[in-house]
Design a protein around this nucleic acid. Sequence first.
DNA 1: AGACAAATCACATCTTTATGTGATCTATTG
DNA 2: CAATAGATCACATAAAGATGTGATTTGTCT
Lengths: 209, 209
Amino acid sequence: MSIKLSIVEDQKDIREMLEALFKGSSNIQFQKSFADAESALNELPDLNSEVVLVDIQLPGKTGIDLIKQLSESMQSTQFIVCSSIEDSETIFEALRAGANGYILKSETPSKLVESVYEVQNGGSPISTQIARKVIGSFKDKEVPSSDWKNLSNREKEILDLLSKGFRYKEVAIKLFISTDTVRTHIRNIYEKLQVNSRTEALNKVYPRN
Amino acid sequence: MSIKLSIVEDQKDIREMLEALFKGSSNIQFQKSFADAESALNELPDLNSEVVLVDIQLPGKTGIDLIKQLSESMQSTQFIVCSSIEDSETIFEALRAGANGYILKSETPSKLVESVYEVQNGGSPISTQIARKVIGSFKDKEVPSSDWKNLSNREKEILDLLSKGFRYKEVAIKLFISTDTVRTHIRNIYEKLQVNSRTEALNKVYPRN
DNA sequence: AGACAAATCACATCTTTATGTGATCTATTG
DNA sequence: CAATAGATCACATAAAGATGTGATTTGTCT
């Protein structure tokens, strides 16, 4: 079973290098290469490629936009970004756009070929430097803001209920205390967090990116 | 420069296999292996290992808890999870706990060794199957909830400001409309979302995991 | 023993939000 | 053209939230 593969890469020398590489690889059926997003957008849907290698920096529309558009119509196609960009935001955007892999151009040819096999086998090939950035984004998430650490257990409990949208009265019932006590806790929470509304407190403690 | 390495793995046969593997690898200085989290917790801080390979399923405390505790005191040490668990939640927890890599036990010995080198070079070795789960968590994030899509542009604009903690009056000023209009929009938003408070609306449209 | 943080409750006041019931104007669409 | 959705504004009321100023109790830490 050979894998139908196309590539989108504007730099002629790299494109031809990749072409030669994949044409010479077993189990890969090289289909076509494109030098820009527009032509890829037109022709790729008809090719039914199983895997598409996409560069990000393209003339005009970026590879990320290309993936975003194509991945909606070509659900069974896997897109691998092949770029030298290591910027976190770019990486995240590409992954959100629908990329199933992100490998650096600096990888060895054999790794590039292997990536194609891997993505077809249900894996997501990612260069380790890229993976580090991706993993980094996880860590931030659970870094309890110093604000949060300064809250007492009871205060955390109450703020947690507030975050779920409960009213003071409901919190009071849940915790078997009076709503006046809930108020007091919330007043103290606000003071510790230096805010003065529920939403501000939540944004401070559970930031949404 | 050989890398100081320790491992935490309760299964004797696997532990001895890994030991043999790394003892026979160049540029790796095998230090010690542990069969449970407790002994690792006691002795590892003194070993100053540069890389520690950690299994998740251990008797008593899990490898995740171990990493969580150790990574606080051993900032310059890199932890790689080596497990057969492919469950998304476990993966995320491990990464949040401080793991810098997550490889499956099914990887070939040479990949295991390579992972140690990679993590020391600033990369994050991740098995491609694991990477797929990690990437998957990115995609969900930008899936606009159907609720969100049903809001008009103006409504989205207003809800966005509400999410930042602005009061009706402030929203009104920002958008050059009256606070009564803001109220009306919010009433309509709540009706579309089937909620009846700011926090509920935000939780519906921007869920926090 | 004294200071301090945490948890509990009370009362008062003022602001913000939520909800009900209108209305006008503009596009868009069947 | 009529219906519908969107954006705008108004007035009114009730509920929820924020703020100020108290107080008591129970721990913990020095």
